[in-house]
Design a protein around this nucleic acid. Structure first.
Lengths: 278, 278
DNA sequence: ACGAATTTGGAAGATTTATTCCATTTTTGT
DNA sequence: ACAAAAATGGAATAAATCTTCCAAATTCGT
């Protein structure tokens, strides 16, 4: 029997698409289906490993109601929806405990294990980045930098990799950007003009040079956006906007995965924002 | 009906206990059960979201054989084993996936969503890095570079962030290291002496300068280790050891998460290896 | 307040999936 | 090389899970 309305509402093809649809239709749903939507929205990770009966019980509805809910979302039934979650899980869910011991027993001792540890730390860093991320603040930072004439970048020691990648991206997107303190130049202040903005990156222990350049720039009423690994550092007072990315360490070392991810997002956001204005 | 032997081999109560048992009995298992063990050991995270038929097919055995394998492990059957994985999955709160898709769809258009996408891409990149990692090759690379007098680093454009971070790490660990092509210097070859080694990073599209420096260095019989995003590129022929890190793109952009993780592992391995020798 | 349309609960039925059984093949010990 | 023991494949059976159906309850429009 064909659907009555012209558009047969195709099934979502990814979890995020599914969530969008839930949020779109939730307000219009009758009581039991609304309960199902509410429960699913907050326990979406259970779908891959539960039965309809379990989920229906969780939502406080009959299995048949939950079933109808799946169909309202565009699926043929619960099984089709579950398949979506299982597929995504298979792709995106490694087992690091397993992978680690696997590498341990596979002869090649040192570096492989190190890589596994750093990869695991990277996952954790990205998780905490997303948990702590203040989207509004990031948007403010992007706006500030996008409206600058030239974006000035500064970051030394471990922060240098971050600004150098940002510099590469901004250049690729034709955004005027300069990386400071790279060529024996001691005093960069004169290059930073009214109407520009500074992006300063510094992690504990902070480098004096970066802090001072940021402070002097701020005093000249040029906007300063900062990226650090703590909210308590000296940059908190100096910067107009302070972004934070914490990394999970492996012994005495770390990979700046979260910081690089955040910086890249910022750079791309700046580029896109400029593109519109041009 | 009680078991015939005195010790009824109780079922494992956690995934790690289960892995231990698999490793313990695997060597004594007959062919088909051995295949099941081998497959499970490498795909253990699939248990929560698969059927016996799927897993049996993956292992290349009949469902009945896989079934017997579960019983050998101490479970009453497959379902009991699967319940273990599902329980562990439920407890290990991936509220992260929820948070991610929340951000991605929550009106907050620009930077927040971008960050969510880049974070997700980062996870995928790290997963595929670990899946494809050749631990033995990484160990060879580390050995080669650790035994060099000076480690020379080269990488331009997007690869520069990688070498600059490696340079920072090696310096911190007191390993003699130099980053090339950073200060207007056109010809670096003379600085690379016999007994040194070169680490070259280049991604598609490859930069001629990096490739040529690597080729010239190799011709002089100085060891070259390379990091790229493909096995087919020009570095395959040039390098003594080629490491590969693929990244998942977001639109036209990427964060070099996997490459940076691999490079960091390599740097730390070099440092540790040197420490022992000193 | 009344009838029509929608929503709901529960149970029956269809389907998928797990489990057992046993004849046949392979391995083991002598 | 032979018999006994163990392992295997495939099909039959049992269990669970999904899905549909419809009478009863509720909501909605007038």
């Amino acid at each position: 029997m064909p659907a009555e309305d012209g558009a047969p509402t195709m099934a979502p093809e990814s979890v995020s698409e599914l969530i969008e649809r839930i949020d779109a239709i939730a307000p219009t749903l009758p009581k039991r289906l609304g309960q199902s939507a509410e429960f699913l929205r907050h326990n979406i990770h259970l779908v891959a490993v539960s039965t309809v009966a379990d989920l229906a019980a969780g939502a406080g509805v009959q299995p048949s109601a939950f079933m109808r809910f799946c169909q309202v979302l565009g699926f043929s039934g619960f099984s089709q929806m579950q398949a979506l979650f299982r597929a995504e899980y298979r792709e995106l869910r490694p087992d690091y405990a397993e992978r680690l011991s696997q590498l341990r027993q596979s002869g090649a001792e040192g570096p492989g294990r190190l890589a596994a540890s750093f990869a695991e730390a990277g996952h954790k860093s990205l998780v905490s980045l997303m948990n702590d991320l203040d989207a509004a603040r990031l948007a403010t930072a992007a706006r500030l930098l996008a409206s600058a004439g030239t974006v000035h970048l500064v970051g030394l020691r471990r922060a240098f990799a971050i600004v150098s990648y940002m510099g590469y991206l901004l250049d690729k997107m034709k955004v005027p950007a300069v990386i400071h303190r790279t060529s024996g130049q001691i005093e960069s202040d004169h290059a930073i003009r009214k109407g520009d903005a500074l992006f300063a990156v510094s992690f504990t222990p902070f480098s004096e040079e970066t802090l001072e350049l940021a402070a002097r720039t701020r005093r000249r009423k040029v906007p300063v956006v900062a990226l650090s690994d703590t909210v308590d550092g000296p940059l908190a007072a100096t910067a107009d906007v302070l972004l934070v990315a914490r990394e999970v360490d492996v012994g005495a070392f770390r990979v700046p995965t979260a910081a690089l991810t955040l910086a890249t997002s910022l750079a791309v956001a700046i580029g896109q924002s400029r593109e519109k204005t041009d």
